[in-house]
Every structure is written in structure tokens, then in C-alpha cells.
Amino acid sequence: MNTDDTTPGWGDRLNTALLRMLPQHLLSRGMYHLARSETGWLKDLLIRYVVTRYDVDMQEALVEDPYAYPSFNAFFTRALKPGVRPLTQEGMASPVDGKVSQAGRIRHDRLIQAKGHEYSLYALLAGDGFMASQFESGTFATIYLAPRDYHRIHMPLDGTLREMVFVPGDLFSVSETTAELVPGLFARNERVILLFDTDRGPMALVLVGAIFVGSMETVWHGEVRSPDDGIARWTYEGDGAPHFSRGEEIARFNMGSTVIVLNTQHAVDPVNGLVGRRVRMGEKIAD
């Protein structure tokens, strides 16, 4: 876990260099199986490390005893007690717990990744020109989930799902320091793009995978993968299109990562002082 000082040090540079050389997907597949092991001593060892290392607040959890979970992944994707994440009654809600690493206006096709680093909206959306054109000159918010955070993803606005896209890619860490070291990080990593219709126009949530993120899953589809290791698309129309209310759970990370929220021009106005803040799911992040 990085401190608030996100200036990359030699350790960060070394770790990033190692990730370039290591078999990222093989390591993540290993973590996928390890996290689902129900061997008592093993899952308890993993849970104990995370609870202690990252000071996880188990009093918020629906099941407070961390060792009552059947696997490390069940602990990591734990549900919260009702009412511990009050939902804003106006504006757009944060879809997750996490730290807002960047937010603001999309400058035509360019988003800020980190100080002094930009990347392409077109690349982030897997080269889909029509989808990208809807968000040009709009707004974005990038929220990083640390290991201590709640790892379920909820709707920022009422919306109807229109498309889901799985994009294969690298599995670099998505920490703030790595974002300063890997150009186009969020457009290079594996990700799931969710496109919704809302009363404020199209909205996209981009769920970015990372090293040791075993998988991403949605409430309507389950684990999202490609049948042939390429880009995969699912479209939803008519009565078959899932509709969700603001604050409703839609997905979860099996291990931590990053969510990028995209809105069209003039749809929302991010609240002041958002960048660098820790936010909680349900908290207002835009008017």
C-alpha cells in the first residue's frame, strides 16, 4: 500500500520493471485459485495478513468475524451492514469506496492518468469510436480501491444497461505510483466496460483489472471473460436490458483495482476538491 506521497521511488520503479518481465496472467490465475481455497489455515493466514496490514474495519461488515468467511475471496468481497454507506439524495453517487486519483474534464479525447501523464479515451474504450464520441469533452473520475476498501461496485445514477465489453490486456498494478510510471496504464490493462443509459445521457463505468485481480463479475452475468481471449461484447435491448437504481449493487472486484466513471458533456459537474479525496460508496461526487 502506498502512502499519500505518490512520487515513485526506486522501489516502485523496481517493482514496475519486474511486472514488465513477470508472467502477469499466470500469477493472477494462481491468485484466483489461492483466493478461493477453503483450506482453513491457508485462508485464515491470508485474511489475517490483510486485516492487520491494511487495518480493515470489520465492524462495518455484515459478518464481523473475518475468519468466518469460507475463503479469502469471500472475505475480500464481503457485504456491509445495512445503513453504513448512506446514499446521497441528490447528484451522482460514488460507485465504490476508494481514493479519487484524478477527476475533471475530458479534453476532447484526453484524460489525465497522473500528474504530467495523459491517455486516450478512444484507447480506454477499446477503439470504439462511436462510444468514445459520446464522452468527448465530458467528465471523468478515477477511483482507486485499496486492499482495505469495500470491493463491491454500485450504480452512481439510475440507469439501464446497454452494452458490456470485456477487453483483454496487461495486468500491471494500478496504484498511483504505477500510474506515473506506465504510460496509458488504464488503456493497457484488462478491463470491463459497462455502458448505461441514464436520465443525464450515456454513462460508462470502466472496471480496470490489475495484478492479482482474480476476476471481475457482474450481478447479471457472473464472471466476465472472453470465450476466445479477444474482445467480447454483450448488448442488451428492450425488456431484456437490466435496469438499476442509484446505489444498487452491480458488480465486484475479486481483489482490488480501479473504477473510471465517464459522463457526457454537461451531464454532471464534479464537486470541488474531489482529486486526492477518499470517498465512500454512496457519497456525492458530482451535481
Rank of each mutant, 00 (worst) to 15 (best):
G83Y: 10
H117Q: 08
W10F: 07
A61P: 02
S37K: 09
A241L: 02
P270G: 00
V275H: 04
G238S: 11
G116M: 05
A126P: 02
T258I: 10
L274T: 13
T177W: 00
G159Q: 01
G247D: 12
L111Y: 03
Q59M: 14
L19Y: 12
M216K: 06
E163C: 00
T7G: 01
F130E: 14
R277S: 15
L42G: 15
T52E: 14
V63S: 05
V275Q: 12
V167N: 04
R53F: 13
I193W: 02
G240R: 10
R13C: 08
F140H: 09
N2T: 08
L62I: 09
G159C: 02
S37N: 07
L80Y: 15
S173N: 02
G30H: 11
R29H: 05
G282W: 05
T52M: 08
E283K: 07
L121W: 07
L19H: 11
H243L: 04
E90Q: 15
E38F: 05
D229V: 04
G276H: 13
G169W: 01
F135N: 03
L171G: 06
M92C: 12
G83C: 08
I285M: 13
L26Y: 05
M203E: 02
A93I: 10
L121P: 07
R20N: 06
T77K: 06
S28E: 01
V63Q: 09
R200I: 06
Q89G: 15
P168E: 00
I47D: 03
E180R: 01
G91S: 13
A267R: 11
Y54Q: 14
Y67T: 09
P82K: 09
G104H: 09
V167H: 03
A251G: 14
D149I: 00
S94D: 15
F130C: 03
D239S: 14
V219R: 02
R36M: 06
F135H: 01
A187W: 04
L124T: 08
V208W: 01
D199V: 04
M92A: 15
R246H: 13
V50H: 08
G214A: 05
E136P: 08
Y32E: 05
M155Y: 00
R53S: 14
T258D: 09
G230C: 07
P66H: 04
M281K: 15
T3N: 04
S101G: 11
T6C: 03
M1S: 13
N2E: 12
R78I: 11
H117A: 07
R162Y: 00
S173L: 02
K284T: 08
F244W: 11
E163L: 00
L185H: 07
H117F: 01
E176A: 00
R252E: 11
H117S: 10
M155F: 00
N2G: 05
P8T: 02
A210I: 11
S257M: 14
D287K: 10
L205T: 07
L262P: 06
E249N: 02
V275L: 01
E237C: 09
L207W: 01
G83M: 10
Y236C: 06
F140R: 06
Q24S: 03
L121E: 09
G40P: 09
L111G: 03
F166A: 00
L22F: 10
S71L: 12
K284E: 06
F166T: 00
G129C: 04
W10G: 05
V271T: 11
M58G: 14
F72N: 07
G282Y: 03
F130H: 05
G214H: 02
N189L: 11
P82Y: 09
L274V: 13
Q24F: 06
